[in-house]
Design a protein around this nucleic acid. Structure first.
Lengths: 339, 339
DNA sequence: TTTCAACACGAAAACGTTAGAGTTGGTGTT
DNA sequence: AACACCAACTCTAACGTTTTCGTGTTGAAA
């Protein structure tokens, strides 16, 4: 077991000083050609690579981005990660991922830990619990320490930083508008509780579309689900008594569960009820009928967030104008809607 | 913008030496009660937290685990990550995730980069391209430098290290046995090309089950897919001419595509053909008919891998006996099979 | 022969931390 | 009075780098 070789060891072997070795490897013109070549050859032979930790300490930057997300077994988040990772890789950064599991405490812990030198900045989507508590001191804290933060998807208005979101409201609006334009007269929505920002926004997009088309808003057609794990029964119960011909669900899971419930209730999709979901994932594509969805373009979102963060990290100029980038959604029409 | 405070700054403010501050915070008995209290109060006030990078450099350990996987938008891998992350968190470790995108070069790059001080050890599932090239020097290299590596799922026999796998062969065997036990006489398999280790193993499990039951192995009933992205057409074409009543697919995607193809071909699942897939994910649960699968227990796998790695990191004793842990699969029977 | 720049290298400090080895001043023992 | 001992610190080295500032040796110009 040969430990990684250091400058010091090379120096000793070649009987020169550490600085000479360092300079040689950086091709400094202070060093003679002979010495440089000797050092380089030796370094190559022993596969010398500078120690990142030492570099980080010296340079006070780690070239690492911290990603904090609520959950990893989640198609949308993983696409975002892929987007971040791609850009980060291209621009010479690494990513370190922490999961909050939607727990406020874990989020605080992660943030604090990573802020102590491990990363140069953060890209995050906040935990549900954090949104509920409305306690953002931990995020404010790292920002005030000079670490750039970019929020995506679930963002917090009160925190001043760069943000990347999709137009949840508009995406929902378009989906509902599509339903209205295609034979639907009575459209229900399955959403989350209001403290989840995106759920709230999508619900309001739904409402706006109805209003824009002179439909009445019937609170009985709005289901807000708290506990995602037991959504299936809730949805079934909700749909039991409803005479609807259109349904908008704020995520894939709800959409799928709704279709299952409808099938149980002997309603056909899309003949009797048209369904559109939010977020495009494997399930949407594979499902029968394949699900029409509002595509969130997660990879673009991640890429944009990464670029924003790295730009800020590399522009010491520090213009303090933070931007919120709103990405377009797009409606993917598949078989779950009448055409 | 207040930068994070350091020991040196605290020392200066309180007019003591850096070591006094350090020792006070560690509650060393070398320091008087008075001074300790003063320092602690000050540190707390300014929210002092030691710099991880400096600690890493000093201690020559980072308390960080590197995870290298081929792909992140992938249900199984994310469950593994969740398992790793959970154990790592509990045991005081962080995880840093790198994606190889199934590219050999990227895998090498990631490994090299992380090995230069960024992590204490690795948990990895190798890229498809690496398996194909059979070039494992990069992995051997980090191991020879004394970094523990734990491989999972797609492991490499030639590399000597701890491994966590499932009994792919046995899982496949059980699935096929189930089909045989439940009215199937002619069972096809949709697999990957042989250089993907798990595909090969599952295929051999399939064959063994057939042999064990005195079925003939018909190479015409074995489809090996190279290009996952265009599997749909391949599968459809394959199934067109086949008169089968059972089908085993080595992953979820293939299973779903197969059912779709069968549906197109006017064959009902499970009435005409029983289907079992490998890996249990959202799609399997949601699909109609819900998919019977071989459950890989990804989270357990991740947890086991993390424990193995951390045990090795923390036991300096270094007994060089590496172990391969074989996790059991379990058959989840749902609606895609006759009962 | 003196002067001086160019060359080629070395020493040291710094990043933030810790731990072991000094140092100081005071008390207690004989 | 001499010594030992203890409390309560400070110093120093070390982890692996980079970079600034020195410094000794050339060779050439004056």
């Amino acid at each position: 077991m040969k430990r990684k070789i250091t400058l010091k060891q090379i120096a000793k072997e070649l009987d020169v000083s550490v600085s000479t070795v360092s300079k040689s490897l950086k091709d400094s013109k202070e060093i003679s050609k002979d010495t440089k070549e000797k050092v380089k050859a030796f370094a190559k032979l022993y596969n010398y690579k500078p120690n990142n930790i030492a570099l980080s300490l010296k340079n006070r930057k780690t070239k690492t981005i911290g990603i904090i997300i609520p959950e990893i077994v989640h198609h949308f988040f993983t696409t975002v990660i892929r987007g971040i990772e791609k850009i980060a890789g291209d621009r010479g950064y690494n990513v370190i991922i922490c999961l909050s599991n939607n727990s406020f405490d874990k989020e605080v812990l992660n943030l604090e830990f990573l802020a102590n030198g491990s990363t140069d900045g953060f890209i995050m989507s906040v935990a549900k619990e954090t949104q509920q508590k409305e306690d953002y001191h931990h995020i404010q804290e790292v920002i005030s320490q000079g670490m750039p933060v970019v929020m995506f998807d679930r963002v917090i208005d009160e925190v001043i930083c760069d943000k990347v979101i999709i137009s949840d409201k508009h995406g929902a609006f378009e989906a509902v508008q599509y339903l209205i334009d295609h034979h639907c007269k009575k459209i229900a929505i399955i959403s989350t509780v209001d403290y989840v920002s995106v759920g709230k926004l999508r619900t309001s997009g739904y409402k706006e579309a109805l209003i824009a088309n002179d439909f009445e808003i019937d609170e009985d057609l709005i289901l807000k689900i708290e506990d995602v794990d037991h959504s299936e029964e809730k949805i079934e119960e909700f749909l039991k008594e409803k005479k609807i011909d259109g349904l908008f669900a704020v995520n894939e899971q709800f959409a799928v569960n709704a279709i299952k419930a409808l099938t149980k209730l002997k309603k056909r999709v899309p003949e009797d009820v048209s369904v559109i979901g939010f977020t495009d994932g494997v399930v949407s594509k594979s499902f029968i009928p394949s699900l029409s969805t509002v595509n969130q373009h997660g990879e673009d979102m991640g890429a944009k967030a990464a670029n924003l963060l790295i730009d800020r990290l590399e522009n010491e100029t520090e213009e303090q104008s933070f931007q919120t980038t709103v990405l377009d959604t797009s409606l993917i029409i598949r078989d779950s809607v009448r055409k």
